[in-house]
């Protein structure tokens, strides 16, 4: 009964970018990048947007979150508007329409 549901007013989108290797987890080939647009909802945080997004991609979900599903796992770095998480944003920071979240594989070199 979709009509009975209160409609979420969509007033914008958040861009989610799976970079290079991480695009493998969302249907890409691991090269370049894959960009998605996730509808923004009021009250969205970095965490809520990513959780909603990763729910659709089980492989990404497994790689992105730890066992609790609530905190980031050790494999993927998150940027908000090209800044590393921890500078201006944490997982609980609000996200605005037009923001960009980038998912980047953890560096395993060195």
């Amino acid at each position: 009964m979709p009509d009975a549901e209160p409609r979420t007013p969509v007033t914008g989108e958040v861009e989610i970018e799976a970079v290079a290797w991480i695009s493998r987890f969302v249907g890409g080939d691991g090269s370049s990048r894959k960009v998605f647009r996730e509808p923004w909802q009021p009250g969205d945080t970095v965490r809520s947007v990513l959780q909603r997004f990763s729910a659709r991609y089980p492989e990404l979900h497994r790689a992105l979150w730890d066992a609790s599903g609530n905190n980031l796992g050790e494999h993927i770095e998150v940027l908000v508007n090209d800044a590393v998480l921890g500078i201006h944003h944490t997982l609980d920071s609000p996200v605005q329409a037009g923001d960009r979240l980038s998912l980047i594989g953890q560096y395993m070199g060195g």
């Binding site: 290797w21 770095e77 940027l79 980038s102 980047i104 594989g105 953890q106 560096y107 070199g109």
Partner: peptide, 12 residues
């Protein structure tokens, strides 16, 4: 270690 280049570029 090839993925490191793009990853680290994006991480600064």
């Amino acid at each position: 270690t090839l993925p490191g280049v793009m990853n680290l570029l994006r991480l600064g």
